[in-house]
Amino acid sequence: MIEVSGVSQVYGAGAARRTVLDGVEVTLSEHRIGVVGSNGSGKSTFARLLNGLVEPTRGTVTVDGLDTVREGRAVRQKVGFCFTDPDSQIVMPTVREDVAFGLRRKGLRGAAADPVVDDALARFGLSALADSPAHTLSGGEKQLLALCSVLITEPDVLVLDEPTTLLDLRNARRIGDVVASLPQQVLLVTHQLDLLAGFDRVLVFDEGRLVHDDAPAGAVDHYRRLMA
C-alpha cells in the first residue's frame, strides 16, 4: 500500500522556479496501476517519488507505512524501479555481474550468488548471454536484463518508468508480457496505451496535477481528449 499525501514538487528558485507536481493526493493498493500523461506532465517525477529517488518538497510518501525520506533504504528494498534507458541502469560490465549486483544487499556474493543468478537468467531467456559484455546486447535484451536485475531482489512493488519507449513493437510486447506475468504490485508509466489493457486503475497527469483517476477505459478516453 502506497500513500501519497499532499505532495508538491518544486525545482529551482526565483525565476527558474518550476512546479513539477502540485498537491497530489492518492492511495495506491491495486495490483496493476497505469500512469499516463504528456511529456512534462510530472508522471516521471511521480514515479520517482515512490521509491524515494525524489524527495517531495511538500507532503509525504509512505510505502507500507515506511516514509520514503526517513526510511529511504527500507523503501528501496520494497520498491524495485525500472528506468526508460537500460544503458543507465545496467551498472556492471557483464550480464551475470549485473544481475548479481542486486543480491549484494541480501549478502549473497560470489559463488553463493551463482545458482540464484543462473535461475533468474533462465527465466528471462538470457542464459546464453550470461558472460557477454552488457554493451553487446540489443536494446530489447538490455531492457530484459534490467528487469531481471531488479526482480532478482524480489521487491513487493515494481515501478516502471516508460520501459518500452526506446524499444521496437516486438520487444515492447515482450516486456509487456513479462510485466503482465509478475506476481508483484506494478505501477507502469507509459505512452503505449495498449499495455494498460487488463489494468485495475489508470492515473492521468497533466501539468503537475492528477487530473483523472479511473478504470483503464475511462482514463484512456480522458487522456485522448486531453491530447486532442
Binding site: 525545482y11 529551482g12 528558485a13 525524489v54 524527495e55 529511504g72
Partner: peptide, 11 residues
C-alpha cells in the same frame, strides 16, 4: 544556490 534534489547529502 537552492538545494536541488541532485545535490542533497544523501544523494
Amino acid at each position: 544556490a537552492p538545494t536541488t534534489d541532485a545535490v542533497r547529502p544523501s544523494r
